[in-house]
């Protein structure tokens, strides 16, 4: 029953979240919520203790059932439940092993950017492509990646998609999300400027400053335009630029 209660509680409250955000402005409620820890029910000691007891119980009962069945004449044996029980035990052992040994990292890359993996390998996002259905829902999105290890290219131009991860040298690489951040390409002769400016960023230089504000709400259908505020000696100007996408 404890297990059911915990599952129910954890199933109602989003997990891995910040439980302090549940009742902002109400310190007493926030303290109670933090004590119950609804956002981490399944990694808390109470649930793990119940799960451990269940696992021991399951193992002992499965062993008892299997030995009882094996004592019966062959024609009377029913091994379906044994199969299910053994499968559950394997699942629990596997989950415990994964929880102890596996680590998870997230990298957000724009096209052309690189990330260094924990083993020193270099992950490069070559191209990110995205397609939509006519109604605007995502149709497909993929990241073409390279992976270099010890100075040699191990994976070249792999098409990483949802439901199509790649496994290499103990790693499993998944494409889990995407974001579109408008970026302006700054071009100007004689200016000591970085190549790009992300939305919301301000860049200050000798000639003044520029803030990338937002996508242009008045852009014509099918076009992508963005609004910038550029302050310089000549006054404030609106600048329009292109964009590129990033994946993670």
């Amino acid at each position: 029953m404890e297990s059911l209660r915990k599952c129910g509680l954890g199933g109602l409250v989003p997990q891995r979240g910040d439980s302090s955000l549940v009742a902002p402005g109400h310190p007493v409620v926030a303290r109670i919520v933090a004590w119950i820890s609804p956002a981490s029910v399944f990694t808390g000691p109470a649930f793990l203790l119940v799960a451990a007891l269940f696992s021991v119980n399951l193992t002992l009962c499965s062993f008892h059932r299997l030995t009882t069945q094996l004592a019966l004449p062959r024609a009377e044996r029913r091994h379906g439940p044994d199969l299910l029980h053994v499968g559950l035990i394997v699942l629990i052992v596997g989950a415990a092993w994964s929880a102890r040994s596996a680590t998870e990292n997230r990298y957000t890359l724009a096209e052309g950017e690189k990330a260094s993996l924990p083993g020193g390998e270099i992950l490069t996002l070559r191209v990110f492509s995205f397609e939509r259905y006519p109604d605007g829902r995502p149709k497909s999105w993929s990241s073409r990646i390279d992976l270099d290890s010890k100075g040699a290219r191990r994976i070249s131009d792999f098409d990483l998609r949802v439901n199509r991860p790649i496994r290499f040298g103990g790693y499993a690489l998944y494409q889990t999300g995407y974001d579109e951040t408008p970026v302006v390409a700054l071009r100007g002769s004689g200016l000591d400027l970085p190549e790009t400016l992300l939305q919301g960023s301000r860049l200050t230089g000798e000639l003044g400053s520029i803030v990338f504000m937002a996508p242009d709400p008045d852009a014509e259908p099918g076009t992508r335009r963005f609004v910038f505020l550029a302050d310089a000696e000549g006054g404030r100007k609106v600048v329009r630029g292109g964009h590129r996408r990033s994946g993670r």
Partner: peptide, 11 residues
Amino acid sequence: AAWGRWWSWDP
């Protein structure tokens, strides 16, 4: 295969 986790305690 899709998310890299066997189980996520999703509702």
